[in-house]
Computed example of a mutant assay.
Amino acid sequence: MQTEYVTHYRGCDIHPVVTTAEGGRYTAAAIVTDREGETRTLGVEGDFAGSDEARNQAMELAIAWIQRRHVVSDHYVRRG
């Protein structure tokens, strides 16, 4: 399992987790921690040939989730 790679995006920390599966394949997930310390784990459906591909897919999923959350949050926050 690889978790040393961390990216900061829109105030969140993204930790992709890559795990070796059967036959030398890889699976991935992303752990996202926001500014308040709330953590969410996002799973990536797939069976990847390389660890870089698995990590990249986990990062893409996390960034998409953060972007959707950011848009929804901004929509419902009153600015005054």
Rank of each mutant, 00 (worst) to 15 (best):
M1L: 11
Q2N: 15
Q2T: 06
T3M: 14
E4W: 12
Y5P: 08
Y5T: 14
V6C: 10
T7I: 14
H8M: 09
H8C: 02
Y9R: 00
Y9T: 00
Y9E: 08
R10Y: 07
R10T: 08
R10P: 01
G11N: 04
G11E: 04
G11L: 01
D13P: 01
D13T: 08
I14P: 03
H15Y: 13
H15V: 09
H15A: 03
P16D: 02
P16Q: 01
P16C: 00
V17E: 15
V18W: 04
V18I: 12
V18D: 00
T20L: 06
A21Q: 11
E22A: 14
E22F: 12
E22D: 15
E22M: 13
G23V: 10
G23H: 12
G24K: 05
R25G: 04
R25V: 08
R25T: 15
Y26C: 04
T27M: 00
A28I: 05
A29H: 07
A30D: 00
A30N: 05
A30P: 04
A30K: 03
A30Y: 05
A30C: 04
I31F: 02
V32A: 06
T33M: 12
T33F: 02
D34K: 03
R35G: 07
R35I: 08
R35Q: 07
E38Y: 10
T39F: 10
R40M: 02
T41V: 11
T41E: 11
L42A: 01
L42K: 00
G43A: 10
G43L: 04
G43C: 01
V44W: 03
E45I: 02
E45V: 04
E45S: 15
G46F: 01
G46Y: 02
G46W: 01
D47A: 03
D47C: 11
D47V: 07
D47S: 12
D47H: 05
F48M: 03
F48E: 08
F48H: 03
A49G: 06
G50D: 14
G50Q: 08
S51Y: 10
S51W: 14
D52M: 13
D52R: 12
E53M: 14
A54G: 06
A54R: 05
R55M: 09
R55D: 03
R55S: 07
R55I: 02
N56H: 10
N56W: 02
N56G: 04
Q57D: 11
Q57E: 15
Q57K: 13
M59G: 13
M59L: 15
E60M: 12
E60S: 13
E60V: 15
E60A: 14
L61T: 10
L61V: 12
L61H: 00
A62C: 05
A62T: 03
A62W: 05
I63P: 00
A64N: 14
W65G: 01
W65V: 05
W65Q: 09
W65C: 03
I66P: 06
Q67L: 14
Q67E: 15
Q67H: 12
Q67M: 10
R68C: 07
R68H: 11
R68V: 02
R69L: 04
R69C: 03
R69N: 06
H70W: 11
H70R: 07
V72T: 11
V72G: 06
V72Q: 13
S73N: 13
S73A: 13
D74V: 09
D74P: 00
H75D: 09
H75I: 11
Y76V: 15
R78T: 07
R79F: 06
R79Y: 06
R79S: 01
R79Q: 10
G80M: 09
